[in-house]
Amino acid sequence: MSGMLNSTIARKVAMSLSALFLLIFLLQHFIINFTSVISENTFNELSHFMGTNVLVQFLMQPILIFAVVFHFVMGFILEIKNKQARDISYASYKGSANSSWVSRNMIYSGLVILAFLVLHFIDFWFPEINHKYIEFAPEDPTRYYHELVEKFHNPIRVGAYVIAFVLLALHLLHGFQSAFQSIGVSNKFNATLKSIGKFYAIFIPLGFIFIALFHFFNH
């Protein structure tokens, strides 16, 4: 296994594995959030389960936080190493002639997503941790829906939400299939993966934007 620990391919494989985990997480996050549009009770029940289940709280949540931090840190490391690989820049470099904007600017879309995550943590995660593990406040299984709706009253926050998810869509448009290419899954499934990737990259972020706008305009 020694070869896996420190090489360009190992770093990319690790990057893609954390990305694939985050893709699965994002899907389940979307499904739960979307229930808030359909049924207040269902959203509360699912949120209560996720917020109190021991496995989710003490196994999946730490793995998720590790994956998020790892993905960002490794993204920065890769960016620095890539810059070092071309110590003198071209006077003329026509990247648009051979590659998509999204594929060349993953670091920038990633930075916007990171900024959004900071806002997201301040909005939801820190109050949640404070509520449950610092204040040990009495649990109210019906509080989740109201907390969600309240956050989407502010048009600036909703605007930030929309911008962040547009950037997430751009990030995923390249990131989804890139994650599979990095772990070598490509030959037989390339066309199918591209289609699934495009669908996921557009549908999931659009869905999150829809949820934010739905609550903004309906409450």
Partner: peptide
């Protein structure tokens, strides 16, 4: 040799 990582841009 100091080559960079692959970002799968396809360039």
């Amino acid at each position: 040799e100091g080559f960079g990582n692959c970002s799968n841009t396809g360039a």
